[in-house]
Amino acid sequence: MNIVVLIKFVPDLVEDLEIDASTSLLDRSFLRLIPNELDEHALEEAILLKERLGGTVTAITVDFGDVDETLFTAVAKGTDRVVKITGEDFSQGVSNEKLAAIFQGVLADLPCDLILTGTQAVDDLDGFVGALLAERLGLPYVGYVTKIDVQDGKLVARKEYPGGLNADIEISGPAVLGIQAAEKPPRYVVTSKVMEAMKKASIDEQEAGEASVEAELPVQRMSLPETGARAEMIEGSAADVAAALLKLFRERGVLA
């Protein structure tokens, strides 16, 4: 099975996020970008599948900046081919619609059996990229996938629903799957293997084609969460606290 994994880079939340002067964008000047965590799960799932079923894994990302190390790490983990889409300055961020269009362009020349990507990202909790891309490619899309299996020659994706429900969905033909979690946490490859990959592997650079985007969702205003004085500390001895709690529960109608 030949699997393509799409990786995008998102702001690293260990840094303090700031909003720029336009008030509709993140201030990217000091931002650290890291690969989207669920995309890393998608890559892991792809490699697990390859180890089980054979085939190839291709990882594709857009040149957001420092992406090479991530791609070489992917090689060290077992990815056969890594592609970096260049052509424009993407470091200021790319909208989901545009990203889907760019990926579509590259995938046109890259026949594959399965396209995996993270089901969402910290900057895209709606999980648009996979679905938009599937729409563009005319392929089925399943999100929130936690497991991929082959039964009787057919692909079966396990989709997780809220409330602990799972559904096993049979897929025929190529499809786009949004991965919620790989079967195992993404593997750690030793640094020496990453270094070896840097020496031996090469990144396939491809120009982004003309990406036509029909509709985008422009951001009007971005803001940090407004913190109100919500929390009320109850202090005193255990008995005082218990009494205050009881009173509160009664007031708010939790207890009769």
Binding site: V190, T191, S192, K193, V194, M195
Partner: peptide
């Protein structure tokens, strides 16, 4: 045991 990372 992570020699490469130690070097880095």
């Amino acid at each position: 045991g992570e020699e490469g990372l130690f070097e880095l």
